[in-house]
Structures are given as structure tokens and as C-alpha cells.
Nucleic acid binder design. Structure first.
Lengths: 213, 213
DNA sequence: TTGTCATCTGTCATGAACTGACATAAGTTA
DNA sequence: TAACTTATGTCAGTTCATGACAGATGACAA
């Protein structure tokens, strides 16, 4: 990797760090692009060559996390039921983040903190989640040998995403509390759902579910 | 109601209509506040006295819908299980929208169309949904005589929201298709969940759920 | 009807978030 | 070193959003 590439990566990281520091210190809205750029000693115009917007720099790590979640899902064994695979992928992701070096971990932690305390960024995060949802649905549909338009893959991923969103909720600043809350919610979900709910119904067999009773 | 109030209401409606028309014709991003204001023949400054932002005017009807959903939920009988109450509240809301006069119905339809075709607005809509979620959780917790911090009320509303979000997904431009998709998803949800999942576990009794087996 | 008051509206000025165009600086490669 | 590619800085311009102030307009009492 050449000097040019390394410099770019360093500038990018420096911009993220400067942005997160300022967002934490004075709030997201009160921080200007000029201030972020000044701290890294680049022109404001250069900032926009690295990030499309102020929101983009705040959510770049969140976007990374989403990519990693998708990667973890595709790495799960095919035999696993879809919802189990999603749950385990999420647990793997949390594990990876826990094992990262301190500089990286701190970056993720500050990002989490900033996003949770800024409505605009919360909305942006949900947009990212929704965008990734489409890819998760496609992967789940592939595993179920179903179409991505079917209701079942969509429903499975929706339930999963809703659990993730419930984790996000105000609590869980530190990773440990977040992991605990995630486990509690996933346990509750497994207790609440019928066994085999995330596998397709065999159309030939009689439906064992007694409907609403 | 005085002349002043009526004029204000008319200006507000005119701004919404003009905005939706322009958003549909040229896209949300390509439309400027100046153009919206010009069409209603008010100054751009006046626009901001009615709406806090460009996003605000696009999502004002969505915000109204959320308020109505909460109202419908509180109107449901106390005896209903929470998830049933939420489902019925949503069905009532769709019914109300179907019965509205043509001008109003068209407004909601165009709003839906614009929001679905604009990522920024989709994110904003999800922010509104999330804000309302807190109120829904509070109401469900009240019905369950539980704390709003308990996992169960949060989980019930999360599942409900996930169904709503799955409805939103790309399809369902016209209200009929939307209602059908909602019914399909609610049916799927009821089939997937154990009977009584949305009622608190009696702590004294033995747990009838055989866990993951 | 008239005068007073509250409120709505337009005009102006300002700042921050972007974006395109172009010249300059820096790195890469022959 | 020379030529080429790419990153950066400067500058000008657009749009969104907000504060300040003055003028217009509906509300209301006498």
C-alpha cells in the first residue's frame, strides 16, 4: 500500500475522531464542518471529499457495523434456522467489537454515544438499518429457498430488526449492558415464538398450528 | 372559529398541497422552499412560520397518522390482549383514512407516495414511528400493569412496529393493497407467536413453555 | 365606526451545509 | 528529471434555516 493510500486512511480516521470528539463536547448540531476541518488542518472542501455530509461522518462506523453484520450472517452455517443465524451473527458482531484494539473500540463507543443522543442521527441510523434489511431479507430468502418478496423472510428479518431497535432504546451505553439486554430480548423472542416459526410450512402436510384457538 | 384561524388553516393546507404536488412532479430534493412559497403566494419566511423545515411539511400528515394510531389504541377495550389491541387500532386507522373525503384522502395518498420514494423522508418517517413507539409502549405497559421499562411491553410494540415497517416496504401504494398486506402480515404474526405470548407470565405457576427443546 | 391591541406577514441580514470549477500541490511511474 | 495521476485549496454560488424589525391585518371594546 503506497504512501498516498496510507495518508488518505489517516486523514479519514482523523476526521472521524475529530468529529466524534466535537460532537460529544458541544453536540452534533452546534458543531460545524469548519471546526472539524480546522482541527484536522484540512480545508472544509476536503472534508466533503471524504464524507458526503455531516451525518455521513457521524454514521460511517454504524454503516461499517451493518456491513459486518451481513458478513457474519453469510458466514453462519446453512443448516441453522434463519432467526438463529441472525441472532448468532449479531452476537458474533458484538464479540468482534469487544475484541478490537482500544482506539477502535473507543471510536465505536463514542459513535454509539453521539448517535443515541441526537434524534437526527437516530433517524439516519434507522435508514441504514432499513437499507441493510433488504440485504438481510435476500440472504434469509436464499437460505429458505424462497423469493425475497415472500412474507416469511421479510417477517423474520423484521422481528430481528425490531429486537435490535429495542436494544438501542436509550439504555445500553456500555457494550456489556448492551450485550445483556440483547440476550434478554432474544430469549424473550424465542420464548414467545412457536418452534419452527422461521421455517417454511410444508404445504402438503396438515397445518399443526391450531390458529387463534 | 374566527376568520384569522380559518385563514391560517387554509394557508397551512395550501402549503402542504403545493409541497406534495411539487415533490411528486420534480422530486423532493429538487424542490425549493421558494417554489412552494411562491405557489401559495406567501414569502419563504412565512413558510417557516408554519413548518419547521422542508421535511416537516412532507411528514406533517405522517405525524398526524401516528397521533391517530395512539388515539385508536387508547380507545380499544381494556380487556383486549395488547397485541390484538394494537392490530385493531391499526385496522381502525386504515378504516378512517378510507372514509375520509376525497381531498383529504388524496393528500394522504400523495404524502405516502412522496415519502416512499425519498430516502431522507423514509428516515424521517421512521424517526416519527420511533418517537410514537415510546408512547405506545407506555400505553401497553399501563394495560399490562407493568413498568414501561419491562421487556415485555417493549417487545410487544417492537413486533407490532416491525409488521408496520414490513408493510411500508416498497409495495402498497394504494390503500387497498396496503390493507391486504397488513392483514397478511398480522395473520402470519399470529400464526408464528405462541397463544398468550403478549400477556405476563404468572410468576407462581409452572412455565408451560418447553423452551427451545 | 373607530381606535387599540395582538398577531401574522414581508423584508433584510446572517450563518451553516453543501457543490461545481479550476488552479496548485503532492505522489507515483517511466 | 519529466510526465502523469490524483488529492487538496480557493473561490463563487445555491439552498436551508433563523433572528430582528417594520408594516399589514384581523380581533375586540367603546
Amino acid at each position: 500500500m503506497g504512501l498516498r493510500e496510507r495518508k488518505k486512511q489517516r486523514t479519514r480516521d482523523a476526521l472521524i475522531d475529530a468529529a466524534l470528539d466535537l460532537f460529544l463536547a458541544k453536540g452534533y448540531e452546534a458543531t460545524t464542518i469548519d471546526q472539524i476541518a480546522a482541527r484536522v488542518e484540512v480545508s472544509p472542501r476536503t472534508f466533503f471529499r471524504y464524507f458526503a455530509s455531516k451525518e455521513d461522518v457521524a454514521l460511517s462506523l454504524t454503516a461499517d457495523e451493518q456491513k459486518m453484520l451481513l458478513a457474519e450472517l453469510t458466514a453462519r452455517p446453512e443448516s441453522e434456522p434463519p432467526f438463529t443465524a441472525l441472532s448468532q451473527a449479531m452476537r458474533s458482531l458484538l464479540g468482534i467489537l469487544r475484541e478490537a484494539d482500544e482506539a477502535t473500540a473507543s471510536r465505536y463507543r463514542r459513535c454509539q454515544q453521539v448517535v443515541h443522543s441526537t434524534p437526527t442521527l437516530l433517524a439516519g441510523m434507522m435508514r441504514l438499518l432499513k437499507e441493510n434489511e433488504r440485504r438481510l431479507v435476500a440472504e434469509v430468502a436464499r437460505r429458505l429457498k424462497a423469493s425475497p418478496c415472500d412474507l416469511l423472510p421479510q417477517f423474520i428479518v423484521s422481528v430481528f430488526v425490531s429486537v435490535i431497535l429495542a436494544c438501542v432504546d436509550e439504555h445500553a451505553q456500555d457494550p456489556a449492558a448492551l450485550a445483556r439486554r440483547l440476550d434478554d430480548l432474544l430469549t424473550l423472542a424465542e420464548r414467545s415464538l412457536r418452534p419452527g416459526w422461521d421455517m417454511p410450512v410444508r404445504s402438503g402436510a396438515a397445518d399443526p398450528a391450531p390458529a387463534t384457538g
